[in-house]
Design a protein around this nucleic acid. Structure first.
Length: 508
RNA sequence: GCUCGGUUCGUCUAGGGGUUAGGACACAAGGUUUUCAUCCUUGCAACAGGGGUUCGAUUCCCCUACCGAGUACCA
């Protein structure tokens, strides 16, 4: 049977990075088994629906290279892929359950349910559960005589449809990650399957759609593990035992410090992103930063996420998407939650910047230079990127660390100037600069080194003594790209001029 | 509370009845680079606790502790 998996997000806000990982694992699994990866939008909650969220999901996934074979964007044999557009389908199925006695009507109001819960809370250690033990006490088509509840329905009283969970039996299912899980049915409540607005709940819609769409493997977050037995029950009641998908419940992403699951607050506190791309809250206008806008490359983000909860069992850590597909196996996914550590993400980013072709990095620098109206020659861009490639973690540093390549320094490290720029040194530096001025335009770093050394030795000094000073005169700072390489990139004319003008400024 | 999961260096993890418990990030030291970064070397550092089973347990079993999730007309 061909493998078919789905990623089923709810458009209730920005897609959390944990959700992105779920999507990624589904995608990898599908590719690995030459199967099909579907995206299904689970928008059955009209109260929490956020219009911009769906577009956000697709933009995020496409940035990362996670593309769906079937979904709302490109359609597919089981369209529509938005649950809100499939409303009638679920109705049809849920009434089959009502007819077979596996589901029933319930008329309890929100207030009545609240009362029931409060009563239980105050009277003992038990928590109210709508189920085999309490069903008879509530207002529903099990407790009420047929004539009575039928009248309620024809009279237009709002109702929900609940799953009729058997009183006492063991439900067993196999989880690809956790092994066999056994749960007593008495601990499962009579879940609402269809809400009073006629929309299905997750449980119904999910099972029905997974069946219709011939999903073979359900790979989803651990938060679904407790309700998986109820889903099993649903498959059985529908008579779909034979084709029930296998389950794989993924471990959660945890806070970097302390305990609990990763939240937006952690991101704000720690100054790191937990959303794939920027998200602007439509109500407050508040912007949550994304990995993309924070300077993480998509391949680094994917690599980082893939290894958060999964490991191929080898020592390899750097994986392209194709390599991930090749190595991925659902059985190697960890059981326990992984703390989110942004330092590792930075490491991957650094690695990928290092190995990226220059042409794919160019735009990062050009964009920033243009933004700031800094004039530049295209030829210099590539040299600067080449020089900085091994030393940056984020693409933005191509700009922040290369300012002196595009404009003369306005300030100088005065510590060095005061300590080292003696009148004697000043005149030696003048000698050096006029030597440099006479050099060929195409001089290489070695030529600069040779010239500087020659002048220094001629004056009875170690060449090393001039290096830091020249660096400060030319770039303003004491750190940066290899000095000789810096001089080569700037070229003799500009170097000489910078030294002269700096000397003029600093020796008055 | 109850149900279901989980627990190897600070973090991500490999391993699995007999190992010097391996790698990576981070951190530290040294080397290279006449600077900075890269790079290289080295160091630091872990089987939650208690009972079993066994010649032998970090590994298998049980209990405890701790952590997480769920316990909605949310997904």
């Amino acid at each position: 049977m061909p493998v078919r998996v789905r990623f089923a997000p709810s458009p209730t806000g920005p897609l959390h990075i944990g959700g992105v990982r779920t999507a990624l694992y589904n995608f990898l699994f599908a590719r690995k088994h030459r199967g099909t990866f579907c995206i299904r939008i689970e928008d059955t909650d009209q109260n929490r629906f956020v219009p911009a969220a769906e577009e956000y999901i697709f933009e995020s996934l496409s940035w990362l290279g996670i593309v769906a074979d079937e979904g709302p964007l490109n359609g597919g044999p089981y369209a529509p892929y938005r649950q809100s557009e499939r409303k009638e389908i679920y109705k049809d199925y849920v009434y089959r359950l009502v007819e077979s006695g596996h589901a029933y009507y319930a008329f309890d109001t929100t207030a009545e349910l609240e009362d029931a819960r409060n009563k239980y809370k105050s009277s003992g250690p038990d928590v109210f559960q709508y189920g085999a033990k309490t069903r008879e006490l509530m207002r529903n088509s099990v407790s009420l005589p047929p004539g009575e509840w039928e009248k309620l329905i024809t009279g237009g009283v709002p109702f929900v449809i609940r799953l009729n969970v058997p009183a006492d039996e063991e439900i067993r299912f196999n989880d690809e990650i956790r092994g066999e899980v056994t749960v007593g049915s008495s601990t499962i409540d009579d879940k609402v399957l269809m809400k009073s607005d006629g929309m299905p709940t997750y449980h119904l819609a999910n099972v029905v759609d997974d069946h219709i769409m011939k999903i073979t493997h359900v790979i989803r977050g651990e938060e679904w593990l407790p309700s998986a037995p109820a889903h099993c029950l649903l498959y059985r009641f529908f008579g779909w035992d034979e084709t029930m998908p296998s389950f794989a419940h993924l471990p959660l992403l945890l806070k970097p410090e302390g305990s609990g699951k990763l939240s937006k607050r952690d991101a704000e506190k720690g100054g790191f992103p937990i959303f794939p791309i920027n998200w602007k809250d439509p109500e407050s206008g508040e912007i949550s930063r994304g990995f993309r806008e924070s300077g993480y490359l998509p391949e680094a983000t994917v690599n980082f996420l893939a290894l958060l909860g999964w490991n191929p069992g080898t020592q390899q850590e750097i994986f392209s998407m194709d390599e991930l597909v090749e190595a991925f196996s659902i059985g190697k996914v960890n059981k326990s939650g992984a703390k989110f550590d942004i330092e590792k993400a930075k490491f991957f980013n650094q690695q990928y910047i290092k190995t990226r072709p220059i042409g794919t990095l160019r735009e990062f620098l050009e964009m920033r230079l243009e933004e700031n109206g800094t004039p530049y020659s295209p030829a210099r861009i590539d040299k600067v990127i080449e020089a900085l490639k091994d030393r940056v973690t984020f693409p933005d540093e191509f700009y922040t660390q290369s300012l002196y390549f595009f404009s003369q320094p306005g300030e100088f490290d005065m510590n060095v100037i005061q300590k080292k720029l003696t009148p004697d040194m000043a005149s030696i530096l003048k000698e050096i600069s006029s030597g440099i001025r006479a050099m060929k335009v195409t001089s290489a770093s070695g030529d600069f080194k040779e010239l500087i050394s020659a002048v220094m030795i001629k004056n009875g000094l170690q060449p090393g003594q001039a290096m830091q000073l020249i660096r400060v005169l030319v770039t303003g700072t004491t750190t940066g790209v290899d000095l000789m390489l810096t001089l080569e990139i700037l070229g003799p004319g500009e170097v000489a001029e910078r030294i002269d003008s700096a000397l003029l400024k600093l020796t008055q």
